[in-house]
Design a protein around this nucleic acid. Structure first.
Lengths: 131, 131
DNA sequence: CTAAAAACAGTAACAGTTCTCATTATTGTT
DNA sequence: AACAATAATGAGAACTGTTACTGTTTTTAG
């Protein structure tokens, strides 16, 4: 009777692509990866499913680089390094006590923070050499 | 002989608007503020000067909210709270030792980070009440 | 096998931003 | 004060990432 989510091969492929890379891809990048498998896939399908994944929390939008949203399928919030030269988005570890900051935000401002995003910007190792 | 930057009243007004607010405005918001002062200003001028300010470092793009870039004229890197409900971007203080993270990025990955961005997402005090 | 509707391809529409070009404002020089 | 030279601008076209629409295909339950 009510809207039941149906299974879809293309949706699976899209999620598979996002999960099997650590490059934090854009919609277009994902589209180009799925295309060889399903040559008739539409870019709209990628966007539509990305929206669904975002809603369900399976995928999260971590940054906008050069006007393009970049996605990540990793569950835990973590830190990123964005190279302003080659535009790559790279995972990095941060052993930091953010829990205290969440408490402070609530206590001092009354803000209820659900998650956070920490991103460093600069030049990655490769771009420092080549430029 | 070479390209000398000329003075411009409208550029001044744009920077003034960004400096005199703490709402981390979008290009359109800035445009609407400058319009009463210079009714013939063009949105293109705002974008053009924002690009110049970004280059010179006088203004920094701190986030993209609902597809719109948001700007900030504050020199020092600081932390923001973005309310996902009313889309407001609010400054918050974070007494955190990020200097160590910069060192670790260089040591462990070879990344030369120039600056960082820490943003918390959630519901601000007002939106918690009204929703 | 059939029928209801979710998912889709293809494409048009949309929004934020950038680009183009003719005009205006600024600046150094007479 | 008038004069180039050229930086800055307004208006609007063009571009780009994303979303919406429509008719068709695929999935799924009975």
């Amino acid at each position: 009777m009510n809207t039941a989510k149906k299974h879809s091969k293309k949706r699976d492929a899209i999620l598979q692509v996002i999960r099997s890379t650590d490059c934090h891809p854009s919609a277009e990048w994902i589209y180009n990866q799925v295309k060889p498998i399903y040559p008739d896939i539409s870019l709209g399908t990628v966007y539509r499913n990305l929206a669904l994944f975002e809603q369900s929390g399976e995928v999260v939008a971590i940054a906008t680089v050069d006007g393009q949203k970049r996605y990540d399928a990793t569950a835990a919030t973590h830190t990123h390094f964005i190279c302003e030269c080659c535009k790559s988005v790279i995972d990095v570890e941060t052993p930091q006590p953010f829990a205290e900051m969440y408490k402070a935000l609530k206590k001092e401002h009354g803000f209820k923070a659900d998650y956070h995003s920490l991103t460093f910007y600069g030049k990655c190792d490769k771009c420092q050499i080549s430029n």
